[in-house]
Amino acid sequence: MNWLAIWAIYRHEMVRAFRTVLQSLVSPVITTSLYFVVFGGAIGSRIEQVEGVSYASFIVPGLIMLTVLTQSVTNAAFGIFFPKFIGSIYELLSAPVSFLEIVIGFVSAAATKSFLIGIVIFITAHAFVDIEVAHPILMVVILIVTCLVFSLFGFIVGIWARNFEQLQLVPLLIITPLVFLGGSFYSISMLPPVWQTVTLFNPVVYLVSTYRWTFFGYADVNLALSASMIVLFVALCLGVIWWMFRTGYRLRT
C-alpha cells in the first residue's frame, strides 16, 4: 500500500477544502439555523411531540443527515471531477498508485470535511434545542460511516459526470429528495401503510432511522436490517468503483 500517495491526495484535498472554509462551514450553519426557525419554531410549535420527543429535537438527526449526505456526495464528486475537468487527472493515472489508494485518498478527505460539517451542525443545534444523545459513541460512528458511504457514492458520481450539469444532477435530483422522503423531518410511522412500505426502498431511511436511534433510542426500522442495508450499499459502491478503474470508465481510453 502506497501510504505516502494516499496522504498526499488526502492532504491536497483538505488544503483545497480549507481554501473555502467559510463557504464550507458557515453556509451549513446558516442553513441549519433557518431550518430550526422554520421547522422547529414555526411548524414545531403546532406539533406537540413525535415518539415522545419534542419536534424541534426530533428533527436534529435528520437535519444533520440531510447536510452530511449532500455534502459528502458533492465534496467527493467535485474532488475527482475537478482534476478530470482541468486535465490534471493525468498525474493520478500515471502515478504508481492503485485504484484503492486513489479511492481512499479522495473519499477519506471528502468524508472528513462532511464529518466536520456534521459536528458544526450538531453544535449549532444546541443553540436552539436541548439534545441528549442516548448512544454518543455510536452517534459518532454512524456519522463517520455515513460520511464514508456517501463520499464513496459521490466519487462514483464524479467519475460518471461529464460536465458540471451532470455533477449537480445527482445531489439535487436524487440525494435531496431521498433525504427529504427518508424520514428526516417525520417518523415513517406517521405515513399511511402503503407509503411506509414504499419508503423502505429508500436507502436513506435506514441511515436516518439508525442515526435517530443513537440520539433517542428509537428507530423507525429494525437496526439489524438497517445495518445490512448499509453494508449492502457500501459493497455496491465499492464494486462499481472497482469496475470503473478496471475498465478505465471515463478515465482511461
Binding site: 502506497n2 505516502l4 500517495a5 498526499a8 492532504r11 491536497h12 498525474e91 502515478a95 498508485v97
Partner: peptide, 10 residues
C-alpha cells in the same frame, strides 16, 4: 510537493 508525494516519495 503534491506530485512528489503522489509518487510515494517522502
Amino acid at each position: 510537493r503534491f506530485s512528489r508525494g503522489l509518487f510515494g516519495k517522502r
